[in-house]
Deep mutational scan, measured.
Amino acid sequence: NQASVVANQLIPINTALTLAMMRSEVVTPVGIPAEDIPRLVSMQVNRAVPLGTTLMPDMVKGYA
């Protein structure tokens, strides 16, 4: 099963992502692949992401 990127904390809108904000977890539906975590660092979210939410490509500016 593919691990996805999950929010490790509440991430406010327009926040630049850091490693501490993300974790890898096997979830359904599948979100951004966990191997993309290094690429996500310093990218901004375009909405508030609650703790435990799977990051989807449309939630991260410049990812999709």
Rank of each mutant, 00 (worst) to 15 (best):
M59Q: 11
T15V: 15
A64K: 03
T28L: 06
R39C: 03
R47E: 08
P29F: 05
T18Y: 07
S24Q: 07
Q2F: 12
M21L: 05
T15M: 09
T54K: 04
M21C: 03
M56E: 12
L51F: 13
S42F: 08
V30H: 12
V45I: 09
A3Q: 10
I32R: 00
V26I: 05
S24P: 06
T15F: 10
R23N: 09
T18M: 11
L40Y: 03
V45T: 07
M59A: 12
G52R: 05
V49T: 05
V60T: 02
P38R: 07
V6S: 03
G62T: 14
D36T: 07
A20K: 14
L19Q: 12
K61E: 15
P29K: 09
P12F: 08
D36F: 11
L40N: 01
I37D: 01
I37L: 09
Q9Y: 07
P29C: 04
A34M: 10
P38K: 15
I37M: 13
P50I: 07
A3I: 07
P57V: 08
D58V: 07
E25Y: 13
M43L: 10
P29R: 06
I32F: 03
A20D: 09
V49A: 06
P12V: 11
A7N: 01
M56F: 09
L10Y: 12
A7S: 12
N1R: 06
A3R: 14
V30Y: 06
D36W: 07
A48R: 11
Q9I: 07
M21Y: 04
P50F: 13
E35W: 05
T18P: 01
A7R: 00
A20P: 05
V49N: 01
M43Q: 05
Q2D: 05
A64C: 04
N14Q: 06
E25S: 10
P33A: 05
N46V: 09
V41M: 15
I13S: 08
N8A: 11
R23S: 11
L55Q: 01
V5D: 01
P57F: 09
V41P: 03
T18R: 09
T53M: 12
I13V: 11
D58W: 13
P57A: 09
N14L: 14
P29S: 05
V30W: 09
V27D: 02
M56V: 10
L10R: 08
N8C: 03
L10A: 06
P29N: 14
Y63K: 02
I37G: 07
V45K: 00
L51W: 10
V6I: 13
T28P: 02
T15D: 04
G31M: 02
L51C: 04
S4K: 01
N1V: 13
N8E: 10
V60P: 02
P50K: 13
V45F: 00
M43R: 14
G31E: 01
V60L: 08
T15Q: 13
V45L: 10
P33L: 11
G31H: 01
V30S: 11
P50E: 06
P12A: 11
A64I: 15
T18D: 07
A3C: 03
D36Q: 11
V6N: 02
A20H: 13
R23G: 06
N8K: 09
R23A: 11
N14W: 12
S42H: 08
R23W: 04
E25Q: 09
A7Y: 00
V6H: 02
A16E: 12
M22Y: 02
L40Q: 00
P38W: 10
V45C: 04
N46L: 09
G31D: 00
A64W: 05
N46C: 03
Q9D: 13
A16F: 07
R39M: 15
G62H: 13
A7M: 05
A64L: 12
A34K: 05
V27N: 04
L40E: 01
L19W: 14
V27R: 08
N8Y: 08
A16T: 07
V60R: 00
L17M: 06
